[in-house]
């Protein structure tokens, strides 16, 4: 007797065929390789980065011959000697490091209350407004934002025009170190809020209520309950802001007036102005090393924060 068509529908047959095809292409005995297959894109990406670093490392050991503008055939540590002995690079490195630390501290201080209000507010309207204000800057690039500050803070900008209304002569607000740091803080703020918000959401509101019911005022609750529990978010946000600030190029270039270079600007100069790829590579490697050391130090002292993806809590 012939089986009814509904007993084994066409869709099942298609699935069988697909399964058979899949078994042919990827037999079950290959199953253990699936995790590696899924990791392959990431490994490829990391591999390319390592290859790039290797090539940069190779270039860093070669000097530029200015009679032919070719790199030397032999290896030398001359570029590293220049990087460690020339005052220009010490000044720029110190400025970048100090600047990124100050920007990180200021950004976290400003981002924390913003993220806290955004997470805890009971008003959906306020939460939406804060979210819109947070995401809007992401649609505007860093360079455009920096040029925006030129319009606002320039000699003929909005701030100086407002000051002139009360009889104050124009003040040079741009083209100095503080202008660069100000621009960086404004640029980093959304990143920090986005990193902090999940950590603050994970703190049960009941804990704060319990602290209050036991007699703790708002300040003690914040200091002994909220702040320690928000540590993973603070560490994660701090790391992101620190590394992005340390390697920033556009803000020092646009708001610094040419005299407030960070390391990235010095690297650009070597690659594209003096055509010295060797020295540029050396500075790039030293920047990578400095950033890695800082991140390692923070990991050692405070853990990886939210970047540990929950492992830190185990």
């Amino acid at each position: 007797m012939r089986a009814a068509k509904s007993a084994y529908p066409l869709t099942w047959r298609i699935m069988d065929a697909l399964e058979a095809f899949a078994a042919f292409v990827w037999p079950a005995r290959f199953g253990r390789a699936i995790p590696w297959l899924m990791l392959a894109p990431a490994l490829l990406l990391v591999g390319l980065l390592v290859l790039g670093l290797w090539l940069i490392g190779d270039a860093s050991l070669r000097t530029l011959d200015t009679s032919t503008f070719l790199m030397s055939e032999t290896y030398t540590l001359a570029n590293y000697r220049r990087a460690f002995t020339e005052s220009l690079f010490a000044v720029v490195a110190w400025r970048s490091l100090a600047g990124s630390l100050m920007v990180t501290a200021a950004t976290l201080i400003l981002a924390f209350p913003y993220a806290y209000v955004m997470v805890r507010t009971s008003s959906p309207v306020i939460r939406k407004l804060l979210l819109i204000a947070l995401f809007l800057p992401f649609f505007i690039g860093q360079v455009v934002r920096a040029y925006g500050w030129l319009i606002i803070l320039g000699n003929q900008g909005m701030v100086n025009e407002a000051l002139s209304l009360v009889g104050i002569a124009p003040i040079r607000l741009l083209y100095n170190y503080w202008a660069v740091l100000f621009g960086l803080v404004q640029y980093m703020l959304p990143f920090a809020v986005l990193m902090l918000a999940p950590a603050l959401t994970a703190i049960p509101e009941e804990l704060e209520a319990a602290a209050g019911s036991l007699g703790a005022d708002w300040l003690r609750t914040f200091r002994h309950v909220v702040l320690p529990l928000a540590r993973p978010g603070l560490v994660g946000a701090g790391l992101v802001v620190l590394t992005l600030s340390l390697t920033d190029f556009a803000m020092p270039a646009i708001l610094g007036g040419g005299s407030q270079d960070f390391i990235a600007n010095a690297i650009y100069d070597q690659f594209f102005r003096t055509s010295d790829q060797g020295l540029g590579s050396t500075l790039a490697l030293l920047l990578v090393a400095t950033g890695s050391l800082l991140v390692g130090l923070v990991f050692t002292l405070f853990g990886a924060g939210t970047l540990a993806m929950g492992r830190a809590r185990q």
Partner: peptide
């Protein structure tokens, strides 16, 4: 390259 470095060293200092 040398002139550039010297100028930068003075101006960035």
């Amino acid at each position: 390259s040398e002139w550039f470095s010297k100028f930068k060293a003075i101006m960035q200092g």
